[in-house]
Design a binder for these strands. Structure first.
Lengths: 324, 324
DNA sequence: CTGAAAGCGCTTACAG
DNA sequence: CTGAAAGCGCTTACAG
């Protein structure tokens, strides 16, 4: 029909005809079928965003940024939650492949996510990694500054006079967990400090994970006087452990952590590295859309500046000394 | 092709042929195009979930429940965030209509959402309302117990001895805001208490909204000794206001609120009505899927039990008296 | 058991 | 400026 022409505003259509068509469309409440359209133009106008934990406020914030940018460019965002499980990641990715989405933003759940990248590559669907990197092939990735921030946070504890500093980081197959551990070790190394045996621990990025690791870390008589945790849930889990063991924070134990997600708290407590979640989402969408537009420049790693926020969990009180 | 037959497992295919087809599919990493399929079977396998505020942890929790139930039934969930703006709701809904999703779960942004329901009805897309109701036409809706919970929370403050009790609820065109106000008034009425002028206030469901309304409420010399807030952000905003004015919580001001979202806090503080967010998402998806399966029973309102959690913001200390 | 035809709702050249 | 034809990737009867 010539309907298509008026819908897409292409070529010229006689005003009278256009009016007739528009009237009919209105009367029928006609909305063109995008799936059918996609079959011929090979574009759906949909981007998929795959995140590992929707109950971690960091990711919804990221999603909000992504969605705003996508909407501005005329795309709709499909959100998928993997619960840090590769099988769910895989299932979701297969579904969006079947839908022929235009591109995907992926925060990989772990080392098996390399398979996800292969899957997407075989379907020729562009992907940009977000928050977490997958080593191996070069990829477009938009992430926060993990290593440097971890070093700054650890350094801040050292400035406070701490010498026995512990670490709770995430699973080894998640890049942020590795990078944050590196930053931690960088800082100790700068000051010729050692990591006593058992002081660097790994746990799932959950409150329960932080609680378990925290109990292990704190129940030794030679326990650390300060701990760096690699994400917000780990930090809260550590506090839970400290409370159970009657260890006061920050008096008896200083804590610094990652991600500022205390939107729903009466008084934010954590000294932390606040990654710009919304900007990460926005930036990643922009990268993806550039690829969709035919950008063939080399794969690009975009590292967003991460601010260190000094609050109370490190032992600072009110005005920060900010030796950073 | 006979490929379709092996993909869909229909009719019998000679094992040898089946094997050949499967082999070819594997070699080509073939994934059938669902959009094309949907054109003929009139099913996409996608459900849309439209929420008003992704940065409010209540909704991601709800989304997680919805997604789990949808996945179990073989559906993929598309998530859309409206920021409480009808225009974004409308844009998103039009996009999912164009995609021909099978059904939608909608937490309406306000009174204009009636137009959304009309839109969906004209496209013959089943919808179930979630968390918030839209009065007028009967609808499938899955929501929490607002009125009764608000009454219980208010009653609890009265048990504490409070007589001058204020309210900060949400916008009048959101059903939860109205219902919570009703519950609040129910409780006062039960005890022959009055609502002094200016004691019942409305504000957007944001921390800033709670802050503003809180300042208004607390700056009078005759200020309330206790306040009920209708959502978590309002509660935190009120605390912000109290802190600025040097009013101690709960010593000088008791607060009770809605939604238990303090996953990321060192020590949950709010006495609150904890709506079962995940169960709401799950239940709503089940309702929607029943409709998709041809369920033509009368429209149904499902009200999920909401638990009142006694904590510290009301003035209780440790073990709750629980006169509820 | 398996192939050829028709059609789902669109768009893209191609004629008129 | 506008209609008729062909085709996007699938599935559904219909023949063989």
């Amino acid at each position: 029909m010539t309907v298509s022409r008026v819908v897409n505003g292409s070529v010229s259509v006689r005003p009278a005809t256009r009016r007739r068509v528009e009237r009919a469309m209105r009367d029928l409440a006609y909305i063109p079928n995008r799936a059918a359209r996609s079959l011929v133009v090979n574009k759906l106008g949909v981007l998929a965003l795959v995140i590992p934990d929707i109950s971690n406020p960091f990711f919804p914030l990221l999603a909000r940024g992504a969605e705003a940018a996508a909407r501005a460019a005329g795309y709709t965002v499909i959100l998928g939650n993997t619960d840090e499980e590769f099988d769910k990641e895989d299932a979701y990715l297969r579904a969006v492949c079947a839908l022929r989405v235009d591109g995907v933003l992926l925060a990989p759940s772990g080392h098996r996510s390399r398979e996800s990248l292969d899957l997407l590559a075989r379907q020729h669907i562009p992907v940009v990694l977000i928050d977490r990197d997958v080593e191996g092939v070069p990829r477009d990735v938009v992430r926060g500054e993990s290593r440097r921030s971890a070093r700054l946070l650890t350094d801040h504890l050292i400035q406070h006079g701490h010498r026995r500093i512990g670490l709770i980081t995430g699973p080894a197959d998640i890049s942020t967990a590795r990078e944050r551990e590196r930053g931690f070790r960088d800082a100790l190394h700068d000051h010729d400090l050692e990591v006593p045996p058992g002081f660097a621990r790994r746990a799932p990025y959950t409150r329960e994970g932080g609680h378990r690791a925290g109990c292990d870390l704190l129940s030794s008589p030679d326990r650390p006087t300060a701990v760096v945790t690699a994400n917000n849930f780990l930090g809260f889990g550590l506090i839970d452990a400290a409370r159970e063991l009657g260890i006061g924070v920050p008096e008896d134990l200083a804590i610094v952590t990652f991600d500022d997600v205390e939107i729903v708290t009466d008084a934010p407590f954590f000294t932390c590295a606040a990654q710009p979640a919304e900007a990460m989402g926005r930036t990643a969408v922009e990268r993806l859309i550039a690829r969709l537009g035919g950008d063939e420049s080399p794969m690009r790693e975009t590292v967003l500046h991460t601010q260190v926020l000094i609050r109370r969990s490190c032992g600072c009180d009110g005005a920060p000394p900010l030796p950073l």
